[in-house]
Computed example of a mutant assay.
Amino acid sequence: MIDLNNAVLLPIDMQMGFDDPGNPPRWNPDVDANGLALLAAWRAARRPIIHVRHDSVQPGSTFRVGQPGNRHRPGFVPQGDEPLVTKSVNSAFIGTDLDLRLRRLGAKHVVVFGLVTDMCVSTTIRMGANMGWDMILVPDACDCFALPDGRGGTIPAEQIHAAHVATLAHEFCRVMGVAELTDWRKAA
């Protein structure tokens, strides 16, 4: 059973760098709208949100602090006293105080969405589950890129996303859609 009154929303890496024109194609044109709907529902219900931002330490990375790609996407900047956890690796739990923050909030569930499904979202969910958190993935508020298949071809982004959602749901998390979460929040 999921008690969403004790769920913390965790937007991961909703940053401008994912829009760089040199990136491969993505599949979800609704990722921003869906993520903003989740934020609006959590804010309206006055439930906790902990934002995660990737601050790269790699020279030349668009995700380095001060670079345009490090900025939050429009509408995803933390508001009021919403905390921001910054990381320099894939997992939002490594080198941060995320676990402590969740414990202090008395969280039972961690609702995750963001960029990109197969990298930071997946790694955070896997690690959170291994640490004992009840992780909930919102796949329609995630996105990822098409990637080379290692044999000269390309795996479409939507297939990469689907495979990662299936793997995560099989062992590491529950899966809930934006509509299910926002309808519940409206009724709360």
Results as ranks from 00 to 15, higher is better:
P48I: 00
V52G: 01
G80A: 11
G114S: 03
G177S: 14
G150W: 12
V175W: 04
G152A: 10
V116M: 07
A41S: 11
L168S: 04
T154R: 08
A92K: 01
W133K: 04
S56K: 07
L105V: 08
V110N: 00
G22P: 03
N23R: 15
M176L: 15
R73V: 13
A107G: 05
M135T: 05
N90W: 07
T124D: 04
V110G: 01
M131P: 01
F172Y: 15
R26L: 03
V8F: 00
K87L: 05
F76N: 00
T123N: 13
N23S: 12
L9C: 04
V138Y: 01
H170V: 02
V85W: 06
V77I: 12
I2D: 03
T167E: 10
M176C: 12
G69L: 10
R101G: 01
L105K: 07
P78H: 04
I50M: 09
V138P: 03
D55T: 11
L98D: 00
E158Y: 08
E180R: 14
W133R: 05
T124E: 06
L38G: 03
D20R: 12
K108C: 04
M176I: 09
H72A: 14
E82I: 09
D149V: 11
A40V: 06
F145V: 14
L4R: 03
L39Q: 03
